[in-house]
Design a protein around this nucleic acid. Structure first.
Lengths: 353, 353
DNA sequence: GTGAAAGCGCTAACAC
DNA sequence: GTGTTAGCGCTTTCAC
């Protein structure tokens, strides 16, 4: 029975309590309260029921609804690192949009361990999540197979996969590198190196590919391509790769990095070697992470709106949830060149000082 | 009935399926699978049941468990801004710990709007969350009243409240300012200003109070205190306040800011006015956000381990969930001075160049 | 030690 | 248009 304030033992207002207090059956209350079924109920009753519900402060129990309907209004977002300046805005944009659409977001800060990722997704499946946003996937990733097999509506974000098994929202990574190279070439650079990202990630792979293509389009592929890949998107890995790059090609005048952190690693190496940016070497980053305007020198970079990427991935996932027959689709966002102080004309072209 | 692979129509492995396949009743399966009740079942049966469950890839349905037991193993984390370099690590630390403890985390990126915050928390309550981490609260916050009234286990993080109604994990904000002032005084500074944060937040309030006390402890409160408060923890608000500070006190030689972003705002103003840091004015930040070693000049600041704060808040909340009688407790983490290049001896004491 | 049955709060097919 | 009934998957009290 409904307690003194129309609440049960746990202080929860249930349909039953509202039913008792308004003298109708639970199912009528349910119909009156759900806009979709409200028309089945006579307006005067509906009004009365709603009034009682409001007075009691009724909140539908999502757990019960989820058990009954199979829909949880829960979304899982799988990230390699929440604190990373790339993924935090993705999460922010996605979660705000999901919240506006009536979904709650469960985050999984899950690192790069494939087994742990799978375990986490499996836990989320047990929670009956309606869908998944995956920001961790490598170019060939068992997580994707898992989601496809289980038919969990899923969207990849930032990083895509080789197959076209899942929809994805990414930046145009190749175009980004083209823009970076064009910028450097327009300043007069010819000996341009690439600080590549991990090749198992689409971002690393496609940006490198974009670099190669861009150099060819400018007729700069005559000499051997100047490329060193970093093992991770970190400042330390960027520094290591930058040392390789500079040791092998001491005459290069510019670097197009696959990522801002790699570019910062290159900054570190230049400081070690008493080289100046942009006087000795120009550097272009990729992502335009927060604070890239504050480093010294302020970093010229390719801006990607990660927040917008998050938002679009949310919209796309909700569409897929609503229509499981929706064909796989790829949304590719255009990147933008942000010119700051880390790029300039090469020393050979500079006026003598 | 159990389908061909022991799954129901939705591809879900249920207790019933396992029961059928191992020739026992559902309740026996439940007992065998839950470690707490496993002893009620004869070992040989338990073993057989477990084997079948494993073979089928059984995952307990959290939704059903939640409905039945009232526990959801779901935690809500309320943040003003996920993408903020202070809150992202808190979320990261907390979510990793919660995940290890068997909880899933729902994030709410909820901004500063009180009504929206309340709505969100109310939605989370409807999801039967077991507890809440609140990172948004002001010194006097209706959200706290809400959680206390509803008896939702809750822990404040980073920002505390005036009353002692809820447990909290924070940094020792006053001590942080004492350390900052001590550092500046030890360099020879006397005319030290404070760039304060919002006074409605405990961090802003306590850091200012810490500043005042620290100055007094060094006997520097003889002259009027040099203080300007920013309206928000942002670079723009920091710049605005810094202009006020410098206009009113052109002779100050050092600034202790309540926050790194405010310090960066001061950087911006100094550049506007052709002043050099630290030559003209030394600046100390607060938080040691990511990349503060890369700005120009590298920022001397008070380091707070936000990730650790997140972890400890998770541990504390789980304790509270397990023992609702646990008295309110305040965990205060010690901050640490990180000396970089934004502080130096005042010009008056510098050797002539 | 195991089975039977109830029920968490809700929705939806069916009856009237 | 409204009430009745069943059941989502699980745990737990009560029989035996």
């Amino acid at each position: 029975m409904a307690g003194p304030q129309g609440k049960n033992e746990q202080g929860r207002v249930t349909l039953k309590a509202i039913a008792t207090l308004s003298g109708v059956h639970v199912s009528t209350v349910s119909r009156a309260l759900n806009i979709g079924t409200r028309s089945m109920v006579v307006p005067s009753v509906a009004e009365r029921v709603i009034k009682v519900a409001d007075r009691l402060g009724y909140r539908p129990d999502n757990t019960a609804i989820s058990l009954r309907t199979g829909e949880s209004k829960l979304i899982g977002i799988i990230l390699p690192d929440i604190a990373n300046a790339v993924f935090a805005p993705i999460l922010s944009g996605a979660s705000q949009r999901f919240s506006a659409l009536g979904y709650s977001v469960i985050v999984a800060d899950v690192g790069n361990d494939a087994a742990q990722q799978l375990d986490f997704v499996s836990r989320l499946a047990a929670r009956r999540v309606d869908g998944l946003i995956l920001a961790t996937v490598s170019r060939k990733d068992s997580l994707v197979s898992f989601c496809v097999d289980r038919q969990i509506p899923s969207v990849l974000v930032n990083r895509a996969e080789i197959g076209s098994r899942l929809s994805a929202v990414t930046s145009d990574d190749a175009l980004g590198m083209q823009i970076a190279v064009d910028h450097l070439v327009s300043l007069g650079h010819k000996r341009i190196g690439h600080l590549g990202g991990p090749m198992n990630l689409s971002t690393g792979f496609l940006r490198r590919q974009g670099f190669v293509k861009a150099m060819a389009s400018r007729g700069l592929n005559k000499t051997d391509l100047i490329i060193a890949n970093a093992s991770a998107y970190s400042r330390a890995a960027g520094a290591t790769a930058a040392r390789v790059l500079l040791d092998a090609h001491p005459k290069l005048t510019a670097i197009a990095a696959a990522n801002d952190l790699l570019a910062l690693g290159a900054y570190d190496v230049m400081q070690e070697r008493n080289l100046f940016c942009p006087a000795d070497i120009s550097i272009v980053g990729h992502n335009d992470m927060m604070l890239m305007d504050m480093v010294n020198p302020a970093l010229t970079t390719i801006r990607i709106s990660h927040k917008e990427m998050g938002r679009q991935s949310a919209d796309l996932l909700v569409e897929i949830i609503g229509n499981s027959k929706k064909p796989v689709c790829k949304i590719v966002l255009p990147p933008e060149l942000i010119v700051r102080n880390s790029t300039g004309i090469p020393r050979s072209l500079a006026p003598a000082s």
